[in-house]
Design a protein around this nucleic acid. Structure first.
Lengths: 131, 131
DNA sequence: CCAATGTCAGAATAACTGATATGG
DNA sequence: CCCATATCAGTTCTTCTGACATTG
């Protein structure tokens, strides 16, 4: 929770919220995706994603076009502008993380990261689709 | 966030929420305290703590009496009933934690715990009173 | 007079739950 | 006919802010 608050405060400095960051990061990491897929990846409810994407789209950070192959879907793409924005946010988040983990040595941070990543991956496998 | 959701779901089974658990645990660990102090320890806003304490008091889990030495303060004490309740919640939380950390070996869990505890303690020292 | 405490009221988010229209 | 998708409307829950009266 403390991490969450610190991150939120950091991102607010750039006018962003964590879901904006999550979506941009997911697009950057996995490439273009439909909203439903993005929702699963970022664990944002489909219904709430709509608003987040509206905002990101208004700011020119993503592009939303209907999939020609499956007209139910929108394909969400990261724009060059969005990519730049993500870089700024990444920097902010990194700074917050440095502050958050100030008590740990570099290799301890790596350890922590690895452990949490494994936990998260495992949860993803076991709980996917359950919410 | 996933941990938070799992814990919330677990505690809900006993009709409790995380702040109830946090308050009971803080009282058990540090002993009786004023509301302001509890607020700082548990990072619940003092305004929100009021409602939590009302509920815990209605359930007979804590006692709230005005401090005779400083009449601004209330002294919050864990009752025997509250202590029993905390034991039940502890069990639930432990089960959730076991599920949450299923991917990790026993000593890895200890490691993770130690790392997080250090981070948290450090944050407490550096940020106390800032919110 | 200023600071800390407990309390209340309400705003601002955030999380969650349907329902609906449309296309596969 | 059933399932998935995007969207909308609306509820509930939580977090957070600001005031206020009381006491030190």
């Amino acid at each position: 929770m403390q991490a969450d608050r610190l991150v939120a405060a950091g991102l607010a400095a750039a006018g962003a919220r964590k879901w904006h960051y999550a979506v941009l990061a997911a697009l950057d990491e996995f490439g273009p995706a439909s909203q439903a897929l993005l929702s699963r990846r970022s664990r944002i409810y489909r219904s709430d994603l709509v608003a987040v994407l509206n905002e990101l789209s208004d700011q020119g950070h993503i592009e939303r076009i209907t999939d020609t192959r499956d007209q139910r879907r929108n394909v969400i793409t990261l724009t060059a502008r969005g990519s730049k924005h993500l870089q700024r946010l990444d920097l902010l988040v990194t700074q917050v993380q440095d502050d958050l983990l100030a008590a740990l040595l570099p290799d301890e941070r790596v350890q922590l990261n690895a452990l949490l990543a494994r936990v998260l991956e495992d949860l993803g496998e076991r709980y996917d689709g359950n919410w």
